[in-house]
Design a protein around this nucleic acid. Structure first.
Length: 597
RNA sequence: GUCUCGGUAGCUCAGCUGGAUAGAGCAACGGCCUUCUAAGCCGUAGGUCCAGGGUUCGAAUCCCUGCCGGGAUACCA
């Protein structure tokens, strides 16, 4: 139980005792006391003056008196206007420090047999082009969300649905067949996903040329787009694929395998993984079955052209198509099928989709449709909706070549990290291999933290020139602080200083030390809050505050030279606990921390 | 048109279940490396919280209206 909870309960008691009123706990507004005032926790007493029928100051004093007398943790209090500032006893803070120090994963709740099973879908790439910046945000958010859910005691299944069928992959296949000269990742030396992406672009280029040529011959734009040989070829391939034509399926398999091999490299570099991968090519037919069942049961209806629709006007929405007039599936149909499969495969208590906010409507509808089809899990779906990554020139568009490629970006950042590190003369004495691991850790720390520190719901701007920084509120800043703490602890060990981790002395605790202990004590609160709000950004924010606090502390105290043994021990234990908290917190963001940098 | 999300310092972002004088980082300017890592620390400067109205002891935060921007909106995924 956190100190806020303890105090909160006692305030309800205080009100009952002083004013003979039963109040809702939600009326108790506690906040961390602002630095310019004495105290740790502040109660806003304005809501209670109505009950006391006294001035805010007097009310605050009465509640303060009660708390001071009846709550061991409350040492004293002061009143400023309508604010009751409570001073928590240092013995309480010491007990928190001891708890945090002794616990291997302070703030982390382990799952039990009765824990909820949460399935999280993230990444969900198309197999026709490499991963880009938008996918990076998705992957990092998805992975971090899973870590945070686990830290809150949930069992988590990480899943990925690969959009491996459809006209888009046929375009790449067609282009490769027409203009590829049989090149493969091996013969060309190009990473598989990039190679397939190259032919996706090639298709578009040739297609545009064909349209232009047809329009010169007097065709309308629409006709030209429909009848260009490239488009007809791609469509023919899709038909052949659906008819299971062996040659087409073979080519499809081959090219998809190239892409998967490429994705695996990118995922590994990003540090994300999955427990179960679904393929759209395997699940898209199930959805059709479900829609037809819905039609038979009268949940959906059919138009004269034989397309199938859902009427969502009772829900305040529109009509939604579920099967095209030619009987083929749309996106929604596939998601219905995939959902059914998942709930058959796992005893899922909650399903979370990490998908961009441009699909808010889609998931709203999906939830309703599943519910209509009689799946009890329909209403419980959660769409973890995140904002787009924008570039200074606007939205990323693959056709305009403004896409920031995931592999390129990571490679560039590793290079910058290496250069910076060498210029600063760090990592001397490291082998080239050790140094390379650290460069990568720093580069990815910068990228991940940059993406995760902003509120997931909001669109964010990525400026390739300026965005990635290694100073200030960044991953490397946090990693750096961690590395320095580790260095201090190494040096202490070198000098034969043994830590007594069981702190009993309550005598001398400086303000800065106390602030750090308080900051550490907030970690479980931050983890819980991040879980409740699905927000890695809250964890990132917390760590940043902790690290800033530590840097001031670090600057102020010469820990190793300190003469007073007790104080030195306390400071080293605090430092060690901070480093553990940083490491644990960063793990929730999927960011590694180096011992040295 | 309708629905939805957003607008906070020059830039990128916190703060938003109403609470004390709206905070960081970057960029700018000025200090601090003979003492545990200067990827750091300290300081200066920078604000009509889009605008207007409402609710109340109190509004960046809640409600309404308007302006600006993003997204979605019946056979793309």
């Amino acid at each position: 139980m956190s100190i806020e909870q303890i105090i909160s309960v006692q305030i309800v008691e205080a009100i009952a005792h002083c004013y003979n009123q039963q109040i809702e706990p939600s009326l108790v507004q506690l906040q961390i006391t602002r630095k310019e005032f004495e105290g740790d926790i502040t109660l806003v007493v304005f809501p209670f003056v109505r009950m006391s029928k006294k001035s805010p100051e007097q009310t605050a004093a009465e509640i303060g008196d009660y708390l001071q007398q009846n709550v061991a943790e409350v040492e004293k209090y002061n009143v400023v206007k309508g604010f009751l500032n409570l001073v928590i006893s240092s013995s309480y803070w010491i007990s928190v420090l001891n708890l945090a120090t002794a616990h291997p994963h302070f703030g982390i709740t382990e799952p039990t047999d009765s824990s909820k099973l949460v399935m999280v879908e993230y990444s969900s790439p198309n197999t026709n082009k490499p991963l880009h910046l938008g996918h990076i945000r998705n992957n990092l958010l998805g992975f971090s969300l899973c870590e945070i859910l686990k830290a809150n005691g949930n069992k988590v299944v990480k899943t990925n649905i690969v959009n491996d069928r459809g006209i888009h992959i046929c375009k790449s296949m067609y282009a490769w067949k027409m203009w590829g000269n049989g090149e493969t990742p091996e013969t060309s030396g190009i990473k598989g996903d990039h190679l397939v992406g190259k032919y996706y672009v090639k298709f578009d280029q040739e297609y545009k040329k064909e349209i232009a040529a047809l329009m010169e011959q007097g065709e309308t734009k629409e006709n030209a787009e429909q009848n260009a040989p490239a488009m007809m070829g791609a469509r023919e391939m899709l038909l052949k694929w659906e008819a299971k034509d062996p040659e087409t399926v073979e080519l499809w398999k081959t090219m998809n395998d190239w892409v998967y091999a490429g994705f695996d490299v990118t995922y590994k570099e990003l540090g994300v993984d999955f427990d179960k991968i679904y393929y759209e090519s395997e699940t898209y037919l199930y959805g059709k079955d479900e829609v037809l069942r819905g039609l038979a049961e009268g949940v959906f209806y059919q138009k004269e052209d034989s397309s199938v629709w859902a009427d969502l006007t009772p829900e305040g929405l529109d009509q939604k198509i579920l099967l095209r007039s030619d009987g083929t599936s749309v996106y929604m149909t596939q998601d219905i099928g995939t959902a059914r499969e998942r709930f058959q495969d796992y005893p899922i208590d909650q399903m979370i989709y990490v998908v961009g906010n441009e699909q808010n409507y889609h998931f709203q509808v999906l939830s309703i449709l599943l519910d209509k089809l009689g799946f009890e899990f329909g209403k419980g779906l959660h769409h973890f909706s995140y904002g787009m990554v924008e570039l200074p020139q606007g939205k990323m568009k693959s056709r305009e070549g403004t896409v920031v490629d995931a592999d390129d970006l990571m490679a560039e950042m590793i290079e910058v990290s290496r250069k910076t590190s060498e210029e600063l003369g760090k990592l001397e004495g490291y082998t080239p291999e050790q140094a390379a691991i650290t460069y990568k850790m720093i580069a990815l720390g910068a990228l991940k933290y940059f993406m995760l520190k902003v509120d997931p719901k909001k669109n964010m701007l990525f400026n390739p020139e300026e965005s990635i920084d290694f100073n200030g509120n960044t991953g490397p800043f946090i990693q750096y602080t961690y590395a320095r703490i580790r260095s201090v602890l190494r040096k202490a060990a070198d000098r034969g200083i043994e830590l007594n981790r069981d702190i009993t002395a309550t005598a001398e605790i400086a303000t800065k030390e106390l602030q750090l202990i308080k900051a550490i004590s907030q970690f479980p609160v931050a983890v819980k809050e991040a879980g409740d709000n699905y927000s890695p950004a809250l964890v990132a924010n917390y760590i940043y505050e902790l690290v800033k606090e530590f840097n001031q502390f670090y600057h102020e105290f010469p820990m190793l030279i300190e003469e007073n043994i007790d104080t030195r021990n306390l400071r080293l234990v605090i430092a060690e606990t901070v480093s553990k908290t940083i490491k644990t917190g960063m793990k929730l963001l999927g960011i590694d921390v180096p011992e040295r940098m």
